[in-house]
Amino acid sequence: MIARSAGSIGGFAQLAFIAEQFGYAYAGAGFGGLKSEQLMLELVPDPSPEAQARADRNRALYPNADDGVSLPPPVREEVELLKARISFDLASQYTAKQRLALGLPLATVLTAAPCVRFGLHSTAALVAGLLWAAFMLLVPVGLASVRRKRDRYGARLRAAGFIPVTDKLGRMRYVSPGGQLPGRGNPAT
Rank of each mutant, 00 (worst) to 15 (best):
L131Y: 01
P182L: 11
M136E: 06
G129F: 07
L157H: 03
E80G: 04
P105S: 10
T189Q: 11
L61R: 15
V146D: 06
V109N: 00
S145I: 02
L126R: 14
K149D: 09
P182A: 13
L131P: 01
Y174K: 04
A133P: 03
P164E: 12
A128C: 05
V79D: 10
E77K: 15
T123G: 03
G161F: 06
I163T: 13
R85G: 02
Q180Y: 00
A53P: 08
A65V: 01
V79M: 11
R59M: 07
V75S: 12
Y153Q: 14
K97C: 00
A53Y: 11
L126W: 13
A128E: 02
A55H: 02
R117I: 15
A96H: 02
A107S: 09
Q52R: 14
P74N: 13
P63Y: 01
G161N: 05
D167P: 08
E77H: 15
N58A: 04
L181T: 08
V175H: 06
G154Q: 07
Q52D: 05
A125E: 12
Y153P: 00
E80R: 14
G142R: 05
T123V: 14
F135S: 04
V165A: 08
V141Q: 05
F135R: 01
A65C: 00
I163K: 08
L90N: 03
V165Q: 09
K168N: 13
D89W: 09
L137T: 10
S70Y: 08
Q52G: 02
Y94N: 04
L104Y: 11
F135C: 06
D151Y: 12
R57V: 01
V75T: 14
I86E: 04
A65W: 06
S87W: 07
A133H: 08
A112K: 01
V109F: 10
G68T: 06
Y94I: 00
